[in-house]
Design a protein around this nucleic acid. Sequence first.
DNA 1: TATAAATTTGTATTTATTACAATCTAATCC
DNA 2: GGATTAGATTGTAATAAATACAAATTTATA
Lengths: 135, 135
Amino acid sequence: MQFYQQQLKEKGLKTTYQRLKILDYLDTHRTHPSVEIIYEDIKSENPSFSKTTIYNTIETLKAHGLISTLTITGSEVRCDYKTDMHHHFYCRSCNRIFDVDLEQPLQPGSGLQGYAIDEMHSYFIGTCPACLKKK
Amino acid sequence: MQFYQQQLKEKGLKTTYQRLKILDYLDTHRTHPSVEIIYEDIKSENPSFSKTTIYNTIETLKAHGLISTLTITGSEVRCDYKTDMHHHFYCRSCNRIFDVDLEQPLQPGSGLQGYAIDEMHSYFIGTCPACLKKK
DNA sequence: TATAAATTTGTATTTATTACAATCTAATCC
DNA sequence: GGATTAGATTGTAATAAATACAAATTTATA
Ligand SMILES: [Mn+2]
Ligand SMILES: [Mn+2]
Ligand SMILES: [Zn+2]
Ligand SMILES: [Zn+2]
């Protein structure tokens, strides 16, 4: 928790219980949870937590580079404690998102001369091993 | 138009004015338009066209591999006539999506052993050259 | 401890998408 | 060609994620 507090201070953000809680949640739940999931989980032990706060906090933390978000499911934002570039696999069957390692990480390349790049993503969509077994 | 009709037949889909129109629209508007944009444009010359039909048709055409869709903006589905794997750049400033060529096309790699892959995407987010100039 | 700025909260609103039932149409068969 | 029917389109209602906003609360600073 001390570390999160320091991160917030470095970014000029006030330390609040909510921000610490969300950072901790994402750090310990590397499952790319949706806002809804985060909300349900946190709310269960902290009923006064507001969903709007989660939206606000996710936006703030992301804007300051402390977390990242994914839009690969098409229906909701998914959150990620990791901010370094890495790749994902989205299983349509169980709705889970997995981190994947690729031999060839994504590189800008000459086709992007003149573009200012903020984010790089690559991902796969399909069915994960566990779901394949069930069928 | 003859070609679209043949494509539909090959997939066992009925030929309808709406499907031909949407295929033609996407073929001639390689701008990754949203459903809303497609709707506005088509409706202007064909007021009876329904937005639901566009949603339905996009889904059907995609399911049969005749078009593809992107979810990279986070707020709406964007449509693409191209179905072969290629990469994208999303400009947050003008909301446009550009096709980009990369030296290294995305490859599954050993990190995805056991996964069944339906789609592969990679994309960049940032500011396009035109928007950079304006600032 | 008092203060100001920032944050949280609850509610209302917006927007994209889906559900659904009635109507219509394309393909098939006579 | 005309009747049949499965499939497609349409309009409306419903859902769900995300945003807007203002009041209440809290943090950091003095
Ligand atoms: Mn991740
Ligand atoms: Mn494209
Ligand atoms: Zn799965
Ligand atoms: Zn731009």
